[in-house]
């Protein structure tokens, strides 16, 4: 697994984490290219189905990054997101996956450093966990299904 470069999807709230990611960029704070962002208006919009879909399509890790607790632009979307993340973690556990492949994070718009740091840390963790179980088992058939 020396050269394993995980695919990581980050669902980021427009009001905080997405802005924090822009902030990280404007401060030229580096983080791994593995992390790719999908912008959502609020993490409360992130459906369990989206997270599952990301894993199905080959994501090795997924995280949902919303506003700090109590700071949600829409009152409680971020806490709803955290509940859903926990629910999907339970599903992953039933499937025999490491639940650390999915995480909920909180940061404010000004926290460019936090965005960069958590992106690094999460990528590092996924690297340790190795490729997603769907890829580990049988890469050939995985390729086939993705076609």
């Amino acid at each position: 697994m020396e050269n394993f470069e995980p695919e990581i999807i980050a669902f980021c709230c427009h009001y905080c984490a997405y802005t924090a990611a822009d902030m990280a960029g404007s401060k030229r704070l580096s983080y791994p290219t593995n992390v790719k962002i999908i912008r959502v208006p609020c993490t409360g919009k992130v459906d369990a189905l989206h997270i599952m879909s990301a894993f199905e399509k080959g994501a090795d890790g997924v995280y949902v990054a919303g506003c700090l607790e109590g700071d949600c632009h829409f009152k409680n979307g971020n806490t709803r997101a955290a509940q859903r993340v926990a629910h999907v973690q339970k599903i992953l556990q039933d499937l025999g996956w490491d639940t650390q492949r999915l995480a909920m994070m909180n940061m404010s718009a000004g926290m460019g450093e936090v965005f960069a740091r958590t992106a690094c840390e999460f990528t590092e963790k996924i690297k340790q966990l190795g490729p997603s179980p769907v890829k580990q088992m049988n890469t050939d058939s995985y390729r086939q299904t993705q076609r």
Binding site: E56, I91, L95, G96, P133, V134, S141
Partner: peptide
């Protein structure tokens, strides 16, 4: 339905089945 379908696909993928 969507979630369970997703879960089952993941399970089969892990087994190398479709």
């Amino acid at each position: 339905v969507g979630l369970l379908a997703s879960v089952l696909r993941l399970h089969y993928l892990k087994q190398g089945r479709t």
